[in-house]
Amino acid sequence: MRLVIADCSVDYEGRLKAHLPMATRLLMVKADGSVLIHSDGGSYKPLNWMSPPATLHIDTADDAEFDDDAVERWIVQATKSDDKLLIRIYAKHHESNHQLGIDPGLIKDGVEADLQRLLAEHIETLGEGYRLIRREYPTSIGPVDILARDATGHTVAVELKRRGDIDGVEQLTRYVEQLNRDPQLAPVRGIFAAQLIKPQAKTLAADRGIACVTLDYDALRGIDDTSDKLF
C-alpha cells in the first residue's frame, strides 16, 4: 500500500463529473489497483475513488509541461470503462509504502454468520433451481460468502450483509471481476443479499448489473411461519 499526504485537487471524468478543489488530503493506492482520496473527516468513506481494475500513470513537472503549479499529475484510468481520475499534486508532505500481506478477511458476527449458513441451507430462496457450490469460496482478494449455480447453470457470487450499503456492492464487484477470470466459472454474476439494503446501494448495484435480494432472517430460521398468517 502506498500512502501520500499532499496538497492536491481531483477531477473525476466519465459517466459523471466531480471536482475536489485543492486541499491537503490522503491519497491511498492499494495493491489491488484501487486509488482512494481521503480527507480528515467524513468517517471511513473516501471523497472519491477508482475501483480496480485500473492503471495508474504519473507525470512529473520534470517530464512534462503543466499549465499550472502542479509537481505531479496522477492519471488513474479504469480498465473496463472511460472513467478517469486526474489528481494534481502541488506539494507532498509525506509518502510511504507498506506491505500488508494477505488479509484473513472479516470475521462475521453471529447474525451475519447465521444468514450465510441459513441461506446456504436454503439456497432455493434465491430462486428455483439454485444449487450451492460452496460457502466462503476463496479468491485472491478474500472469500466470497456463497458461490452457487442458478437454474441455467450459470455461476452466481452472493455477498451477505445485515445492512447493505455501497461498500458491500463495491466488495462484491471486486469478487465478481476476480471470479470471471476463471474460465471454469465465467460468466459470473452477483447477488447482493441483506436484511436491509440502502437505496444508494440498490442504485449502484443496478448500475453494476448486480441483483439485490432482501432477506427475512426470521423466515429463514423457520420462526416466521407464513402458513399461520391470515394475510
Rank of each mutant, 00 (worst) to 15 (best):
A91S: 14
D207L: 07
T214K: 13
R117Y: 10
I210T: 05
I166Q: 04
A206E: 14
A78M: 04
G168P: 09
V10C: 10
L230H: 13
A219R: 14
I146M: 05
K108L: 05
I223Q: 09
G41I: 09
D11H: 11
R2H: 11
K92E: 09
D11E: 13
P138T: 09
V35N: 02
F66G: 07
G101Y: 04
G129K: 11
T155Y: 00
Y90K: 09
H94W: 11
Q195P: 00
V71A: 08
D7N: 14
E128W: 00
I87M: 03
M1I: 10
Y175M: 06
G222M: 05
G105L: 06
E177C: 00
D32H: 08
M50I: 09
V176Y: 02
E124D: 13
A194C: 07
L16T: 15
V213W: 07
Y175A: 03
R73P: 04
Q200C: 02
D32R: 06
E72D: 11
R88L: 08
L230E: 12
Q200Y: 11
A157P: 05
G101H: 08
L215P: 05
Y12E: 05
D103A: 13
T24S: 08
I5C: 07
A219P: 00
E121T: 06
M28G: 07
R134C: 02
D68I: 05
L106F: 15
P183Q: 06
K80L: 14
M28V: 15
I87A: 07
G222F: 02
I107V: 13
L16S: 15
P46C: 08
V176C: 06
S81F: 01
D83L: 01
L172K: 02
E112F: 03
P104M: 07
E159M: 03
K198H: 10
T173Y: 12
T226W: 04
R131S: 12
Y12W: 14
T79Q: 12
G127Y: 00
F66A: 07
C8I: 12
H19A: 11
I87P: 00
Y137G: 08
L16M: 10
R135F: 02
A31E: 11
S227N: 09
P104Q: 07
D7M: 07
I37V: 15
K198P: 00
K202R: 15
D67L: 12
A151R: 13
L196G: 14
D11S: 15
V158M: 04
Q178M: 13
V213K: 11
D216L: 01
A157M: 03
S96R: 14
N48V: 15
G110K: 14
L56C: 08
A151L: 07
